[in-house]
Nucleic acid binder design. Sequence first.
RNA 1: GGCCCGUUCGUCUAAGGGCUAGGACACCACCCUUUCACGGUGGUGAUACGGGUUCGAAUCCCGUACGGGCUACCA
Length: 507
Amino acid sequence: MEKKVRVRFAPSPTGGLHLGGVRTVLFNYLFAKKHNGSFIVRIEDTDQRRYVPGAEEYLFDCLRWCGLEPNESVQHGGSFGPYRQSERKSLYKKYADQLIEQELAYYAFDTPEELEKMRAQLATPSNPSPQYDRQVRLQLRNSLALGEAKTKELLDAGTPYVVRIKMPEQETLRFTDLIRGEVSFDTATLDDKVLLKADGMPTYHLAVVVDDHHMQITHAFRGEEWLPSAPVHILLWKHLFGLEQMPQWAHLPLILGPNGKLSKRDGAKYGFPVFAMNWTDPSTGEVTEGFKEKGFLPEAFLNLLALLGWNDGSEKEIFTLQELIDSFSIERIHSAGARFDYEKAKWFNHEWIKKSSTDRLLPEFEQRLFTNAISGAEREKLKQVVALVKDRCTLLTDCNEQAGFFFTEPAQLDTTAITGKWSAEKRAFFEWLANQYQTSSLGDAAAQELLFKEKAASLQLKAGELLLPLRIMLVGGKFGPGVFDIATVLGPTVTAQRIARALTLLP
RNA sequence: GGCCCGUUCGUCUAAGGGCUAGGACACCACCCUUUCACGGUGGUGAUACGGGUUCGAAUCCCGUACGGGCUACCA
């Protein structure tokens, strides 16, 4: 029987959740759901210096907003915990000791200063970043160079040490990546990576292998930036658990910004978000805007991320989460990096707003338009407004401009758009119109338009020259849905009031 | 510098030996609309370069160029 599919997303709680991170989550999630598997979130908090308070809760908030709930995690529980690496510390030490025992790893006592010195001394123009590798390891302070007795002496004296993997002299390490096919590395070009740090914490390399094994991960998705360290992980799997136990790797192409790797700065510089939700740096108080707050629907956010480097082979571009699950396949993930295009991202959002139901959009609008709870009557009115204006909103935040005037009288009227062709006759027409709204029942939008045009014709006025002034009077500017639709939602009293008020501002 | 990955319109991509290289975003034009959008129709626009293999190459192979990533006791 096939092993049950288990995948994981393994972020370090150091800051905002990036576009690329969400896409990695999404692909994990889609793959898990597609194969009735489990999606696990494991917190990789092994670097205590980079730990940022609040980042972990923030991460789960983002996943919740996206609707990508894990099956197992710090917050969701599960039988493979703990799901925080800092709480699994002793486990890693055990494997580090085992590797040393088998002479596949060794103790290194070099201090950070000594390492820095070594690198500075060995650096040449043709080799700007010397490695801690087979070439130099015998000249450094480690158990390989020092011998058993001296090593024991240092250990007994409590000298701080790290554990480094002993890269084989010359061996070709190969594996089949689900996205790129066979990838191979020559160990002769690789360095002796640290596995266990001086503080007893594992590095990513050791932790990812140990945890993937213990959590029975079957498929490991991660960003392409990890590809160069894959051979270290392959080697550890070989040494510790056997290659046949190793999960299948899939290195996802990177999401690029306008120039190169997408960074937080790019967002600030080019005016688009890079994080899923607003992230506040607790040390500086600096806020980095998120897609949520920018006015994206999570459905659209996931949709656009999925289509960045993946497609189902057809020309379909708009997918619900369920449709993504149904049609997802790793083979159709592109191998090249994809440049993020904010214009296209907005298009996805617009398509989603258009296709979403009024009920789906109602809370989104309500939350943005009102600070306090609203009455049932107001909510009914808002429903009509949403239906009327949603097609014109690219971002949810556009609702302020597109729908705000239904609830609040426009602060300013763009009267310059009227005054050019203003006349006493027109004034008289609007006085009549305000009176009509005030005193008679004018019927639906079509009926109002008919009456409006008939009256204009009887006064020898062009309806077209009266429509724009009416719009300005009701809306404040040259935007919004059909004027009579607006008047209908506003109701006759408010419509009459707005016309009357505008007339006081006109000659 | 070394190692690894990549390369089809400006951007995201389809086409995995065989049509005039298809679609989407953006852009332009026209239509619709007496606001602005939506919508409709059409248009501009690409196989990085050089060699092979083949009757035939965007597709397979090699080289070059370019782009990206990694090269920490960070992930």
